[in-house]
Every structure is written in structure tokens, then in C-alpha cells.
Computed example of a mutant assay.
Amino acid sequence: MEKIGFGGGCHWCTEGVFQALKGVLQVAQGFIQSEAPSDTWAEGVIVSFDPGVVSLEILAEVHLRTHSANGTYSPGGRYRSAIYVFEAEQRDTAMRAIARFATETGAASRTLVLPFLGFKPSDGRYQNYYRTDPSRPFCRRYIDPKLNYIRRHFAEVALPDATDRAP
């Protein structure tokens, strides 16, 4: 099992995205901290995964394609487009994925590769947000389109239904 952190937009969405993938064993939703100047707590998830089932390369690509990796919106700095690495070897993989994404989209990515320093879980009522009630208007509007994208473009690692596994 390996761990990697992802930040980009709302952690409800990010959690739902990674829970929809084969090989993802756990997704912890909350706030991640890195070193200065990215030391403010920002929304994110810690993904525990089986690299024999889903690679870090695929996880990074899914992340880059399911949030605004090229945008600049970040109210109060709480949304940071980032890949938080736990091990030095993960840095190179993340950097290659970002470079490939920028080449394919023709736009520079603002996604940072940062060392993971700390994590605070979000309030329990927000955990497993999509799985507990996928019919919420927020889920329908923001998370469902991302899950549909994953099923179309990452079918080999997509679960048939994101609510298939128990939280």
C-alpha cells in the first residue's frame, strides 16, 4: 500500500473521484499542510492505494483531469491544486504527469508538487459525502460529471458505480 495526497477544489469532489477507482483502498478527506509558502491548511485528500492495481501515474492523471488544474480560483487559499508526496520517488512521477498534462492541454498547469507535512480530517458529517447521499444537488451538479468522465476515459480502473463500496 502507498499513500499520496491530492488537493484541488472541494475535498468533497476530490474524495468522490478517488473513491470511484479500483485499487484505492481508503480516501481520507480533510485539510493538508505542506511547507512554506504552502503551509496554510488547504482542502485535500490522502489516498491509500494498491500500486499493483492502480498506478500513481494514473491517479495523478485522474486528478489533473477532474479539477481545474489550469485555473487560479482559490477563495482564501483553501483550495490548492497540488500533489502531496510522501516519498521522494513520488515527486518525479508527479512532475512527469503534470508536464505530460500541460503538453496535452497546451496550457501550463498550476498544480504544485509539495511534500506532505500534516493532515486534519474534516468534520465527520462531511466524510464520504458522495457515498452517503449521491442525490444531493451538489453531488449531481459537481461530482456526477467527474465520475462520468472517469468511467468514459479511465474505464480500466473505474468502478462501475461509485457507491458500490461501503464507506
Rank of each mutant, 00 (worst) to 15 (best):
K3T: 14
G7E: 15
G8Q: 08
C10I: 14
C10L: 13
C13P: 03
C13A: 07
T14S: 14
E15F: 01
V17N: 13
F18C: 11
F18P: 02
Q19M: 04
A20Y: 03
A20S: 12
L21P: 00
L21N: 03
L21Q: 01
L21K: 03
K22L: 13
K22V: 06
V24T: 03
L25A: 08
Q26P: 05
Q26K: 11
V27D: 00
G30I: 07
Q33D: 07
S34H: 07
E35L: 12
A36L: 06
P37T: 05
T40V: 01
T40Y: 06
G44F: 07
V45F: 04
V47R: 08
V47L: 12
F49H: 01
F49P: 03
P51K: 10
G52R: 02
V54N: 03
L56N: 00
E57R: 08
E57D: 13
I58V: 11
I58K: 13
L59F: 05
L59M: 04
A60W: 05
E61D: 09
V62Y: 04
R65Q: 10
T66Y: 02
A69G: 01
N70E: 15
G71V: 04
Y73C: 07
P75G: 09
G76L: 14
G77W: 00
Y79V: 00
R80M: 10
S81A: 15
I83H: 05
Y84T: 05
Y84C: 07
A88N: 10
E89K: 13
E89V: 08
R91K: 09
A94S: 10
A94F: 09
M95F: 11
M95G: 00
A97W: 03
A97V: 09
I98N: 05
A102I: 03
A102T: 09
E104M: 05
T105E: 13
A108Y: 11
A108E: 15
R110F: 15
V113W: 04
P115Y: 11
F116C: 11
F119M: 12
S122M: 07
R125H: 06
Y126G: 02
N128E: 06
N128D: 11
Y129S: 05
T132W: 02
D133N: 14
D133P: 01
S135A: 13
R136K: 14
C139V: 14
C139G: 11
Y142G: 06
I143N: 03
D144W: 09
N148F: 12
R151Y: 05
R151L: 06
R152Y: 09
V157C: 13
V157I: 14
L159M: 09
P160I: 10
D161F: 02
A162P: 06
A162F: 07
R165G: 04
A166Q: 12
P167F: 00
P167D: 07
